[in-house]
């Protein structure tokens, strides 16, 4: 059994274009999207504001994961303390009410933050698909600069309009300082 679906083009992840400044990258994204390409990803050495909107990607929803994490931590922490003091191990501390909720607030708060922080970090890592030791873009030697001082735009081969030569020329026309084929 062969797994190769359509051996028409050499297996490419996409075409990678290099830019020197984030402004040039954004200008190129606008041009390329204007020509109808839609499967795009950009790689930058630092966060560039509004880049996901330019690329037409959906905004992240990680904040809801963090909110849920915080709620679980807070309610869980408060519930645990109530259960311990009311059910599991009720002790009379100097005649104070068993359900002395103000005393439970510090731990409830700390556990809210703890769980929310874990959801933030784990959520970010998992939604980003990390850890991911291999990714096709790393096959391009020059991609090392994406963590230093260069900005990259990748038109991925899954794009409906994808054609190696026309993508290359579109990217060059959009101001790319260099264009690379990314092997899959």
């Amino acid at each position: 059994m062969s797994h190769t679906a359509e051996p028409t083009t050499p297996l490419l992840h996409g075409i990678l274009a290099e830019f020197a400044e984030p402004e040039a990258l954004i200008a190129a994204i606008r041009k390329v999207r204007g020509q109808g390409y839609s499967k795009l990803e950009a790689y930058t050495p630092f966060p560039v504001e509004g880049l996901t909107d330019e690329l037409g990607h959906k905004r992240t929803k990680i904040q809801w994961i963090i909110l849920c994490g915080g709620l679980v931590g807070g309610l869980g922490g408060f519930g645990l303390q109530c259960w311990i003091n009311l059910v599991a191990y009720p002790i009379n501390y100097g005649g104070r009410p068993q359900f002395s909720w103000p005393a439970f607030m510090p731990v409830t708060f700390e556990l809210t933050v703890l769980a929310a922080a874990f959801s933030a970090v784990v959520g970010m890592i998992v939604l980003n698909g990390l850890p991911q030791p291999y990714h096709p873009v790393f096959n391009v030697k020059e991609f090392d600069a994406a963590s230093k001082d260069k900005f990259f735009l990748c038109v991925e081969s899954g794009d409906a309009k994808f054609d190696v030569e026309s993508v290359k020329s579109a990217l060059k026309a959009a101001g790319a300082t260099a264009v690379f084929e990314v092997e899959d």
Partner: peptide
Amino acid sequence: MGWRGAASHWERHQMAYLLLAGMSTPL
């Protein structure tokens, strides 16, 4: 962990960072 600086990764990273800062402040 194989960070490659993809735009969508940065967006999640920045959101997580911002909210962590927001949580660390009262913490």
